[in-house]
């Protein structure tokens, strides 16, 4: 598995630091009313673990590796899909009084 861009050493640390700042800044100004949806949204975002699980399973050799890899892909897909659906459902309901009111969502 030779990558064309190596993310190692000091470059890796730079990326880590800058991404950490980005995450902090994005959340820093969030109003309390959005805490739960945002937690759910960030829960969805780490569903990106799916691409890593795909590559791990896609390169698995032994049966043990394949079984663990499949469990990983299954769970990662669950994280991504479930995270998306519940976040979308919660945010769907945020409307201002100016917007037209639909009857309560069910």
């Amino acid at each position: 598995m030779t990558a064309i861009v190596a993310i190692t050493g000091i470059v890796a640390l730079y990326i880590f630091m800058l991404a950490a700042f980005a995450g902090y800044e994005v959340i820093a100004k969030v109003p309390v009313i959005l805490h739960t949806p945002l937690m759910s949204g960030s829960n969805f975002v780490h569903g990106i673990v799916l691409v890593g699980a795909m590559v791990a399973l896609g390169g698995a050799h032994t049966t043990l590796e394949k079984v663990i890899g499949s469990v990983g892909v299954f769970m990662a897909a669950g994280n991504a899909a479930g995270g998306y659906v519940v976040t979308e459902r919660m945010l769907e309901m945020f409307k201002s009084s100016g917007a037209k009111r639909k009857p309560g969502g069910h």
Binding site: A19, Y24, I27, L38, S42, N43, V45, I48, G52
Partner: peptide, 13 residues
């Protein structure tokens, strides 16, 4: 890279 960036952003947020 996608896992590194998304994971770190969520970790700090």
């Amino acid at each position: 890279a996608a896992m590194i960036i998304a994971g770190t952003v969520v970790g700090s947020a």
